[in-house]
């Protein structure tokens, strides 16, 4: 079997395992919905629905069928993207989610970019100044940051920058008077509104990535191949760029993948504090309104996001290091 075959086989098995996880997730949600107290259809029928329609919805669950058929029905509906109709918005759940997903996509992508750039820069600086004051302070801060909940950070930022200094807006995405502005002004206005949320949501990720990367850099720079390269007379920058960094990034990629998936599922707390129109706030509002189809839809989408980004992270890892193909085949 040549390398090409091996790669294809490993990719296939990786994709299959993702599909398996997805099925497991759907099964889990199915079991939860059935276990929850009360009639499962009651969670999909709002009291405002007309009796005819309610009966139709009830029939669509096939509750008279045996349980395995119900399960297959649920899985096939979920896979085709039919999550039912939201009580609150009175349109299919998927179209509600689509409206909110765009914001979350942009917001989390910017946030991830910021997290990666800043943490890589900090890790590099602190790697170059090992054991010095800057390094020590950063390491302490990154540990300290584990213990500070995101909502505390967000509220402190609001208190300092919005209330005391009156520099940045506390919530929302648009200023009140934005009718007579051109597109550029609107985009700038939106950016201005998401500065504080971006800081809030990025701080946790930055400290995690920083800690990982710094420790990895130090471990790898102490290995013998680096010593060999140094002895061969390569300059330090080249060694860092071509040999230490790629090796150190390797394990970080899956962490970044999980983080991105979590962000895409919606930053529950940040979006709630800053009243942003994203997936997280949609989920929480749906819970408050007892809009169960929407809650279940949001959870499933969030799960899918994590599964997909995990898959992508693994694919990138394989692309970077062909040796990993062997690990995956096993």
């Amino acid at each position: 079997m040549n390398l090409q075959h091996k790669i294809i086989r490993s990719l296939l098995s990786r994709v299959l395992s993702s599909v398996f996880v997805l099925l497991l997730l759907i099964t889990f949600v199915f079991i939860l919905v059935r276990l929850a107290p009360g009639d499962p259809t009651a969670k999909y029928i709002s009291p405002k629905l007309s009796p005819d329609l309610a009966e139709n919805v009830q029939k669509s669950f096939g509750l008279n069928e045996p349980i395995h058929k119900q399960f297959i029905l649920f899985v096939s509906k979920t896979l085709t993207g039919d999550f039912g109709v939201s009580y609150n918005y009175r349109i299919p759940v998927l179209s509600v989610i689509k409206e909110y997903f765009l914001f979350t996509l942009i917001f989390s992508s910017i946030s991830l970019a910021i997290q990666i750039i800043i943490s890589f820069w900090l890790a590099k600086v602190s790697f170059n100044n090992q054991g010095k004051l800057f390094d020590k302070i950063l390491t302490k801060l990154s540990i300290f940051n584990y213990s500070i909940p995101a909502f505390v950070i967000g509220l402190i930022l609001i208190y300092i920058f919005s209330i005391k200094l009156n520099l940045l807006p506390t919530s929302g995405l648009n200023s009140i008077y934005d009718e007579d502005k051109n597109a550029w002004m609107i985009i700038l206005d939106k950016l201005y509104h998401i500065i504080l949320p971006l800081i809030t949501i990025s701080i946790a990720g930055i400290s995690i990535f920083y800690k990982y990367l710094r420790d990895n850099l130090i471990v790898i720079s102490n290995q013998t191949f680096v010593l060999n390269l140094k002895a061969s007379g390569l300059n330090e920058k080249q060694i860092y760029k071509k040999h230490i960094l790629p090796n150190a990034i390797q394990p970080l990629i899956s962490v970044i993948g999980i983080e991105y998936g979590l962000l895409l599922g919606g930053a529950l707390i940040t979006e709630v504090i800053f009243a942003l129109p994203g997936m997280g706030r949609l989920t929480i509002n749906a819970i408050i309104n007892r809009d169960f189809p929407l809650v279940i839809g949001c959870t499933l989408i969030a799960g899918v996001m994590v599964i997909v980004t995990n898959l992508i992270a693994d694919l990138i890892k394989i692309k970077m290091d062909k040796r990993l193909v062997k690990d995956l085949i096993r």
Binding site: F28, V29, L32, I258, G261, L262, G265, L268, T283, I284, I287, V295, I296, C298, T299, A302, G303, V306
Partner: peptide, 8 residues
């Protein structure tokens, strides 16, 4: 991500 299952 357990947070979503917890919320659900």
């Amino acid at each position: 991500p357990s947070i979503f299952l917890v919320v659900l």
